[in-house]
Nucleic acid binder design. Structure first.
Lengths: 241, 241
DNA sequence: GCCGAAAATTTGGTATTCCAAAATTCCAAA
DNA sequence: TTTGGAATTTTGGAATACCAAATTTTCGGC
């Protein structure tokens, strides 16, 4: 087994002056890795997770792995069966939709607060993200386009200055990442995405809280529709295989 | 040390037909107990938590206790210092206010959805909770009055039928319980509480989504004010001791 | 008496171990 | 061949053991 010492990992984190943050534990490192595996479907939805196997695969013992699983359960990426066997969550379309509704309310609030609290440079940064997406509408790789999209949403929430909101939003982001990514690959959706983003950014630039919140709510509402379509298509395609 | 076997606990849970839910683990049991301790200030804000001592006090080993602490950290009731020593969270007034703002958005959404999705019996139940509070305005013990208040809010959220919302709301509830309880003890606030509740229940009965959301938002906004006052008073009082 | 360094102790992180519950395999009876 | 159940294996829950880091205590020099 590979033993990962703290010192061997130190160059990955504690860079610069960020000595405020507690040093990373194996639990967090494992959670990050697992999160990535799940989002990239290296661990596919519904897959059972054998604590011993996965721990061995990550080169750690079961103790920190179990901690990581608890974390991911909170994020909604891992579920426990009635007999407490952990598996990768496989949310139904209905559940994804329910999560998106909450996400919509969170982002609307974020936009509203951002209109009041964002610094000018934060607004400028958000505008530039939107421009980047518009400019690359025909050229950007799906993953890049998507990442920029996500970054823009996160930036708005960050600009709200509300830490609780930022944290809860991040949690929903993790939970919805996969579904939204699948949806975003439908390239014909880019046009709509950009139009909606334009409305959001426009309202935010004018610091019109009501309009920003409304535009974000609208954007998330259409996300529900798009994701429904995409997941259905996907399910149909997988059925054929 | 007292060894708590699963069978010794079995009569506490697996009652009736609820065999769907995974059986309780020591982690959950410990988390529940600790949550109670923290909310009742048996473990006061800012207190450091020695894993060994607390585990021994609960009659369990460190392993499940650590799991419980992870859970409570997610709920915002426990924090880790830079050197990873766990302590009871002691949120600043500012943090409480930020959480209440998010809570406001969540409850507004819940009210909106409840207007659409609540069954008539759910609405009736919420109305009766409101009546119970109104009737007992002068007689109910602070804790009972408060509990009914909380139950009413939870019932509205439950009636929304959105599981993600229910879960996230519960988390915020845990986080804010103490601050709201302190605030609710200011008996002069009962009148205002009841008036605001009346507005909420009235709108909900008419299934007026906009009005319900608005009334809840307003209610939470005033909660921010009240809690600020209450916590300030409390701080001043403690300073004198 | 005060300060700082070194020793002792306490604390949290992780691995290992043991156990009971669950799942699987296997085999004999129908 | 099918099936019921006993035997076996696998799995997760929890306790314990061990280590390194952090904290506290001790004590010698000033």
């Amino acid at each position: 087994m590979i033993v990962v010492t703290n010192s061997a990992l130190s160059d990955l984190q504690e860079s610069d002056l960020e000595l405020q943050r507690p040093r990373a534990t194996l639990v967090e490192i494992a959670a990050d890795k697992l999160r990535e595996f799940i989002l990239l479907e290296k661990l596919p939805p519904g897959a059972t997770i054998s604590e011993r196997d996965v721990a061995a695969a990550l080169g750690i013992s079961r103790t920190p792995l179990r901690g990581a699983l608890t974390l991911l359960e909170q994020d909604g990426l891992v579920e426990y069966s009635v007999t407490r066997r952990p598996r990768v969550a496989d949310p139904s379309l209905e559940e994804v939709a329910e999560n998106l509704v909450v996400m919509g309310a969170l982002e609307a609030l974020g936009g509203e607060l951002a209109c009041v609290n964002a610094t000018d440079s934060e607004v400028k940064n958000i505008v530039s993200l939107q421009q980047k997406m518009a400019a690359g509408a025909d050229t950007l790789e799906p993953l890049d386009f998507f990442r920029t999209d996500m970054t823009m949403h996160q930036s708005i929430i960050k600009a709200s200055g509300n830490r609780a909101l930022i944290e809860t939003h991040a949690r929903y982001n993790a939970r919805l990442w996969r579904a939204r990514f699948v949806s975003s690959r439908r390239s014909d959706g880019r046009e709509q995405t950009l139009a909606e983003h334009a409305a959001i950014v426009d309202a935010l630039s004018r610091r019109d809280a009501k309009a920003t919140a409304g535009a974000l709510r609208e954007h998330l509402r259409s996300a529900v529709t798009n994701i429904s379509v995409a997941l259905e298509e996907r399910r149909a395609a997988q059925q054929k295989e």
